[in-house]
């Protein structure tokens, strides 16, 4: 039996043990059964979880009746060992759903309460009678949103193009220096991408002040990273045959990229970019909600005044524009492929 597999099985059992311990103590006892564990996690509690982890892993190794044991001795397990392991898995699933329900404070009672239903009916009623008189103001704000999104896409395009090639493994792996650059860029791209644009907007609003500019910067940054990732994956999946053919003519590496790589990625790049503009419009409406300007900000203003008919107008307009952008971008991308 390989050491790696053994370590994996031990880790699986240990994590499962600690997880079950923590969920039972903090959620089942602490939240559902009304117990009162202390706010902060004490050393004793940490040690308890470590004990759960070690104990569970130990039981797995000795009694061979845990999921980890199943990874190791799947073929030779006795029926009762198999059954216990299965029940552990089921118990974990049930516990997890129970926890999720409790943590999200899912409450059918509140969902169907008379007062709640009444407010909802008032709101939806207003939304269905949109206030047409603010259409021109809403349209102007919508245009602002579309331009913010366009700006973020256009300004993000050149750096994303450059990064798309520099973060493509197949172009960068030949030389240690370029490969190091590739690795650094990959980490940067994945980090920037994994932080939501909304959070970047909050960060930039501290830097340049709340407003459309902060929203645009946030989307710009996220666009560069997201497009660079899409582009580089496209570059990585090209047919190396054409590249080799151009290389064989004695062309300069820049010419090889231009004649061997670019023709293969041009149309997909265009499609990604259009898709990105369309998703930036959607994102811009959301960023507007936290002060990024445009239609989202307008919506928040009316929402603050509880002017639901105006809010209804804006929501309808957003839905219409998003739908049109979606449709257009899908059609253009269809034509490209």
């Amino acid at each position: 039996m390989s050491l790696a597999l053994r370590i994996r099985a031990l880790l699986a059992d240990a994590l499962l043990g600690a997880y079950i311990g923590a969920v039972v103590y903090r959620i089942v006892w602490g939240q559902i059964l009304g117990g009162s564990p202390p706010e902060s996690v004490t050393l004793a509690e940490w040690l308890g979880y470590a004990g759960c982890a070690g104990g569970f892993a130990l039981v797995g190794q000795l009694a061979r009746c845990t999921p980890g044991a199943w990874l190791l001795w799947r073929e030779s397990m006795r029926p009762w060992q198999r059954t216990v392991a299965q029940h552990v898995v089921w118990a974990t699933v049930v516990l997890t759903i129970w926890t999720g329900w409790s943590v999200a404070r899912v409450s059918p009672v509140e969902f169907f309460s008379a007062k709640g239903l009444e407010s909802a009916a008032r709101l939806f009623g207003a939304l269905l009678r949109p206030e047409l008189s603010i259409l021109d103001a809403a349209l102007l704000a919508m245009l602002q949103t579309i331009y913010i999104a366009l700006m973020a896409t256009l300004l993000g395009l050149p750096p994303a193009l450059l990064l798309g090639f520099l973060a493509a493994r197949n172009l960068m792996r030949a030389h240690p220096v370029t490969f190091a650059l590739y690795a650094v860029l990959r980490v940067w791209i994945n980090f920037v991408r994994s932080v939501e644009p909304l959070i970047w907007a909050v960060i930039f609003s501290v830097w340049v002040g709340i407003g459309p500019f902060a929203g645009m910067l946030a989307m710009l940054l996220h666009t560069v990273a997201a497009l660079a990732k899409l582009y580089s994956e496209q570059v990585e999946s090209i047919d190396p045959g054409l590249v080799e053919a151009v290389e064989s003519t004695g062309a300069h590496p820049i010419q090889v990229v231009f004649y061997g790589v670019v023709p293969q990625v041009l149309l997909p790049f265009l499609a990604f970019t259009i898709y990105r503009w369309d998703s930036n419009v959607r994102m811009a409406t959301v960023i507007g909600l936290v002060g990024g300007g445009g239609i989202g900000t307008l919506l928040m203003q009316y929402q603050g005044l509880a002017r639901w008919q105006e809010v209804g107008m804006i929501v309808l307009l957003i839905a219409a524009v998003v739908w049109v952008m979606d449709y257009l971008s899908a059609r253009i991308r269809e034509m490209l492929s």
Binding site: D239, G241, L242, E244, A245, E247, S248, T249, G250, Y259, P263
Partner: peptide
Amino acid sequence: RQRIGMVFQQFNLI
């Protein structure tokens, strides 16, 4: 490389 031409099974054209 310039003084040696090459053709391939898959043509490798744009």
